[in-house]
Protein backbone atom coordinates (compact mmCIF):
# COMPACT_ATOMS: atom_id res chain seq x y z
CA UNK A 1 0.00 0.00 0.00
CA UNK A 2 2.69 2.41 1.09
CA UNK A 3 4.83 1.37 -1.85
CA UNK A 4 2.03 1.95 -4.36
CA UNK A 5 1.41 5.38 -2.89
CA UNK A 6 5.09 6.31 -3.12
CA UNK A 7 5.26 5.05 -6.69
CA UNK A 8 2.16 7.04 -7.65
CA UNK A 9 3.56 10.21 -6.08
CA UNK A 10 6.87 9.80 -7.87
CA UNK A 11 5.15 9.25 -11.22
CA UNK A 12 3.25 12.46 -10.59
CA UNK A 13 6.52 14.21 -9.77
CA UNK A 14 8.00 12.90 -13.01
CA UNK A 15 5.68 15.07 -15.12
CA UNK A 16 7.07 18.52 -14.25
CA UNK A 17 10.60 17.13 -14.23
CA UNK A 18 10.26 15.69 -17.73
CA UNK A 19 8.56 18.87 -18.95
CA UNK A 20 11.45 20.92 -17.60
CA UNK A 21 14.19 18.80 -19.13
CA UNK A 22 12.40 18.80 -22.47
CA UNK A 23 12.73 22.59 -22.45
CA UNK A 24 16.49 22.48 -21.86
CA UNK A 25 18.71 23.45 -24.77
CA UNK A 26 18.95 20.52 -27.22
CA UNK A 27 21.34 17.78 -26.20
CA UNK A 28 24.68 17.77 -27.99
CA UNK A 29 24.29 21.03 -29.87
CA UNK A 30 27.43 23.13 -30.08
CA UNK A 31 25.49 26.38 -29.77
CA UNK A 32 24.36 25.74 -26.18
CA UNK A 33 25.18 28.21 -23.46
CA UNK A 34 27.14 25.49 -21.67
CA UNK A 35 29.43 25.26 -24.65
CA UNK A 36 29.78 28.87 -25.77
CA UNK A 37 30.37 30.66 -22.47
CA UNK A 38 33.00 29.57 -19.95
CA UNK A 39 34.08 26.29 -21.50
CA UNK A 40 34.90 27.94 -24.82
CA UNK A 41 37.44 30.05 -23.00
CA UNK A 42 38.94 26.99 -21.31
CA UNK A 43 39.23 25.09 -24.57
CA UNK A 44 40.83 28.02 -26.31
CA UNK A 45 43.35 29.09 -23.69
CA UNK A 46 43.63 26.15 -21.31
CA UNK A 47 46.55 24.36 -22.90
CA UNK A 48 48.78 27.48 -22.94
CA UNK A 49 47.92 29.27 -19.74
CA UNK A 50 46.97 26.52 -17.30
CA UNK A 51 49.86 24.12 -17.73
CA UNK A 52 48.35 20.85 -18.96
CA UNK A 53 47.30 19.56 -22.35
CA UNK A 54 44.39 17.73 -20.79
CA UNK A 55 41.86 20.54 -20.35
CA UNK A 56 39.94 18.58 -17.73
CA UNK A 57 43.08 18.51 -15.60
CA UNK A 58 43.40 22.26 -16.15
CA UNK A 59 39.87 22.81 -14.94
CA UNK A 60 40.19 20.49 -11.95
CA UNK A 61 43.54 21.64 -10.68
CA UNK A 62 43.94 25.17 -11.94
CA UNK A 63 40.85 27.11 -13.02
CA UNK A 64 38.60 25.44 -10.47
CA UNK A 65 41.40 24.23 -8.20
CA UNK A 66 39.68 25.54 -5.11
CA UNK A 67 36.81 23.09 -5.69
CA UNK A 68 39.28 20.26 -5.73
CA UNK A 69 40.88 21.65 -2.62
CA UNK A 70 37.49 21.33 -0.97
CA UNK A 71 36.98 17.93 -2.52
CA UNK A 72 40.13 16.42 -1.03
CA UNK A 73 38.93 17.87 2.27
CA UNK A 74 35.65 16.02 1.77
CA UNK A 75 37.44 12.71 1.38
CA UNK A 76 39.56 13.48 4.43
CA UNK A 77 36.30 14.23 6.24
CA UNK A 78 35.09 10.78 5.19
CA UNK A 79 38.15 9.21 6.80
CA UNK A 80 37.73 11.18 10.02
CA UNK A 81 34.02 10.36 10.01
CA UNK A 82 34.57 6.63 9.54
CA UNK A 83 37.19 6.57 12.29
CA UNK A 84 35.00 8.61 14.62
CA UNK A 85 32.08 6.25 14.04
CA UNK A 86 33.92 2.93 14.12
CA UNK A 87 36.88 3.19 16.50
CA UNK A 88 36.24 1.70 19.90
CA UNK A 89 37.85 2.00 23.29
CA UNK A 90 38.56 -1.69 23.76
CA UNK A 91 40.41 -3.37 20.94
CA UNK A 92 39.31 -6.82 22.11
CA UNK A 93 35.79 -6.81 20.64
CA UNK A 94 36.60 -7.18 17.02
CA UNK A 95 39.47 -9.58 16.60
CA UNK A 96 38.20 -12.70 18.37
CA UNK A 97 35.65 -14.46 16.28
CA UNK A 98 36.71 -13.35 12.87
CA UNK A 99 36.72 -16.11 10.26
CA UNK A 100 40.21 -16.73 8.98
CA UNK A 101 40.89 -16.10 5.33
CA UNK A 102 41.14 -19.10 3.10
CA UNK A 103 42.04 -17.91 -0.36
CA UNK A 104 42.81 -20.39 -3.11
CA UNK A 105 46.48 -20.74 -3.98
CA UNK A 106 45.84 -19.77 -7.58
CA UNK A 107 44.10 -16.52 -6.70
CA UNK A 108 46.74 -15.70 -4.15
CA UNK A 109 49.57 -16.37 -6.59
CA UNK A 110 47.99 -14.37 -9.40
CA UNK A 111 47.31 -11.39 -7.18
CA UNK A 112 50.88 -11.40 -5.87
CA UNK A 113 52.12 -11.66 -9.43
CA UNK A 114 49.98 -8.78 -10.62
CA UNK A 115 50.54 -6.49 -7.64
CA UNK A 116 53.69 -4.72 -8.90
CA UNK A 117 52.12 -4.20 -12.30
CA UNK A 118 48.95 -2.77 -10.79
CA UNK A 119 51.09 -0.43 -8.71
CA UNK A 120 53.04 0.62 -11.76
CA UNK A 121 49.85 1.27 -13.70
CA UNK A 122 48.58 3.41 -10.84
CA UNK A 123 51.75 5.48 -10.86
CA UNK A 124 51.50 5.83 -14.64
CA UNK A 125 47.92 7.08 -14.37
CA UNK A 126 48.89 9.57 -11.67
CA UNK A 127 51.87 11.13 -13.41
CA UNK A 128 50.30 11.19 -16.87
CA UNK A 129 47.12 12.92 -15.78
CA UNK A 130 48.10 16.20 -17.40
CA UNK A 131 48.57 14.85 -20.91
CA UNK A 132 46.21 11.89 -21.05
CA UNK A 133 43.05 10.68 -19.34
CA UNK A 134 43.84 10.02 -15.71
CA UNK A 135 45.15 11.91 -12.73
CA UNK A 136 45.53 11.81 -9.00
CA UNK A 137 42.10 10.53 -8.05
CA UNK A 138 42.02 7.80 -10.65
CA UNK A 139 45.52 6.58 -9.88
CA UNK A 140 44.94 6.88 -6.13
CA UNK A 141 41.83 4.75 -6.44
CA UNK A 142 43.79 2.07 -8.29
CA UNK A 143 46.43 2.09 -5.55
CA UNK A 144 43.73 1.91 -2.90
CA UNK A 145 42.08 -0.98 -4.69
CA UNK A 146 45.44 -2.74 -4.79
CA UNK A 147 45.72 -2.35 -1.02
CA UNK A 148 42.24 -3.83 -0.64
CA UNK A 149 42.99 -6.81 -2.89
CA UNK A 150 46.22 -7.48 -1.02
CA UNK A 151 44.36 -7.35 2.29
CA UNK A 152 41.94 -9.98 1.04
CA UNK A 153 44.73 -12.24 -0.15
CA UNK A 154 47.50 -11.76 2.39
CA UNK A 155 45.37 -11.12 5.43
CA UNK A 156 45.08 -7.86 7.29
CA UNK A 157 48.28 -7.90 9.30
CA UNK A 158 50.51 -8.44 6.30
CA UNK A 159 48.76 -5.79 4.22
CA UNK A 160 48.74 -3.18 6.94
CA UNK A 161 52.52 -3.16 6.75
CA UNK A 162 52.12 -1.34 3.45
CA UNK A 163 51.23 1.76 5.42
CA UNK A 164 53.58 2.10 8.40
CA UNK A 165 52.21 3.73 11.56
CA UNK A 166 54.61 6.64 11.70
CA UNK A 167 54.03 8.34 8.37
CA UNK A 168 50.40 7.16 8.21
CA UNK A 169 48.64 10.33 9.42
CA UNK A 170 50.88 12.43 7.18
CA UNK A 171 50.02 10.31 4.16
CA UNK A 172 46.32 10.45 4.96
CA UNK A 173 46.50 14.23 5.09
CA UNK A 174 48.76 14.41 2.02
CA UNK A 175 46.17 15.68 -0.44
CA UNK A 176 44.86 18.71 1.49
CA UNK A 177 48.37 19.54 2.70
CA UNK A 178 49.86 19.52 -0.82
CA UNK A 179 47.00 21.69 -2.00
CA UNK A 180 47.49 24.19 0.79
CA UNK A 181 51.26 24.11 0.20
CA UNK A 182 50.95 24.80 -3.51
CA UNK A 183 48.25 27.36 -2.79
CA UNK A 184 50.50 29.26 -0.45
CA UNK A 185 53.41 29.00 -2.88
CA UNK A 186 51.11 30.55 -5.46
CA UNK A 187 50.15 33.23 -2.97
CA UNK A 188 53.74 34.33 -2.46
CA UNK A 189 54.51 34.04 -6.15
CA UNK A 190 51.51 35.58 -7.89
CA UNK A 191 49.55 37.22 -5.09
CA UNK A 192 46.61 34.85 -5.38
CA UNK A 193 45.92 31.67 -3.43
CA UNK A 194 46.40 28.75 -5.84
CA UNK A 195 47.71 31.15 -8.46
CA UNK A 196 50.08 29.52 -10.93
CA UNK A 197 53.01 31.45 -12.41
CA UNK A 198 51.75 33.07 -15.58
CA UNK A 199 54.89 33.90 -17.54
CA UNK A 200 55.30 32.05 -20.84
CA UNK A 201 58.78 30.84 -19.93
CA UNK A 202 57.57 29.36 -16.65
CA UNK A 203 55.19 26.85 -18.16
CA UNK A 204 57.34 24.00 -16.86
CA UNK A 205 56.82 25.27 -13.30
CA UNK A 206 53.08 25.19 -13.89
CA UNK A 207 53.36 21.60 -15.06
CA UNK A 208 55.55 20.68 -12.08
CA UNK A 209 53.03 22.15 -9.68
CA UNK A 210 50.20 20.27 -11.34
CA UNK A 211 52.25 17.11 -11.05
CA UNK A 212 52.96 17.74 -7.37
CA UNK A 213 49.25 18.15 -6.70
CA UNK A 214 48.44 14.99 -8.68
CA UNK A 215 50.95 12.99 -6.66
CA UNK A 216 49.66 14.44 -3.40
CA UNK A 217 46.10 13.56 -4.32
CA UNK A 218 47.12 10.09 -5.51
CA UNK A 219 49.07 9.20 -2.38
CA UNK A 220 46.53 10.78 -0.05
CA UNK A 221 43.57 9.18 -1.80
CA UNK A 222 45.15 5.73 -1.72
CA UNK A 223 46.07 6.05 1.97
CA UNK A 224 42.55 7.18 2.85
CA UNK A 225 40.79 4.44 0.84
CA UNK A 226 43.02 1.76 2.36
CA UNK A 227 42.56 3.13 5.90
CA UNK A 228 38.78 3.28 5.54
CA UNK A 229 38.77 -0.32 4.33
CA UNK A 230 40.98 -1.54 7.15
CA UNK A 231 38.89 0.24 9.76
CA UNK A 232 35.72 -1.37 8.43
CA UNK A 233 37.47 -4.74 8.17
CA UNK A 234 38.50 -4.57 11.82
CA UNK A 235 34.91 -3.95 12.85
CA UNK A 236 33.41 -6.63 10.67
Amino acid sequence: MKKALVAALLILAAIPLLLAVSELPPHGSASNATYTHVSAYYLEHGAEEAGAENIITDVILNYRGFDTNGEVTVIFTALAAVLAVLLLGDASTATEDKPSHSVSVVVSFIVRLLAPFIAMFAVYVIINGHISPGGGFQGGTILGALAIVLTLVLGEDEARRLLPERPKPWLQAAAPLTFIGIGLAGLTDTGFYLGFPTAEALSWIRTMWLLAIEIGIGVGGAAIIASIFWTMEAER
Partner: peptide, 19 residues
Amino acid sequence: FTNPIPQALILTGIVVAVS
Protein backbone atom coordinates in the same frame (compact mmCIF):
# COMPACT_ATOMS: atom_id res chain seq x y z
CA PHE B 1 35.95 19.04 -28.15
CA THR B 2 33.47 18.05 -25.50
CA ASN B 3 32.87 20.42 -22.66
CA PRO B 4 35.47 19.85 -19.91
CA ILE B 5 33.58 21.53 -17.08
CA PRO B 6 30.86 18.93 -16.41
CA GLN B 7 33.46 16.18 -16.37
CA ALA B 8 35.56 18.09 -13.87
CA LEU B 9 32.51 18.76 -11.71
CA ILE B 10 31.46 15.15 -11.72
CA LEU B 11 34.91 13.98 -10.69
CA THR B 12 34.32 16.07 -7.58
CA GLY B 13 30.80 14.72 -7.31
CA ILE B 14 32.00 11.12 -7.43
CA VAL B 15 34.47 11.71 -4.63
CA VAL B 16 31.71 13.24 -2.53
CA ALA B 17 29.49 10.24 -3.28
CA VAL B 18 32.24 7.81 -2.27
CA SER B 19 32.74 9.70 0.99
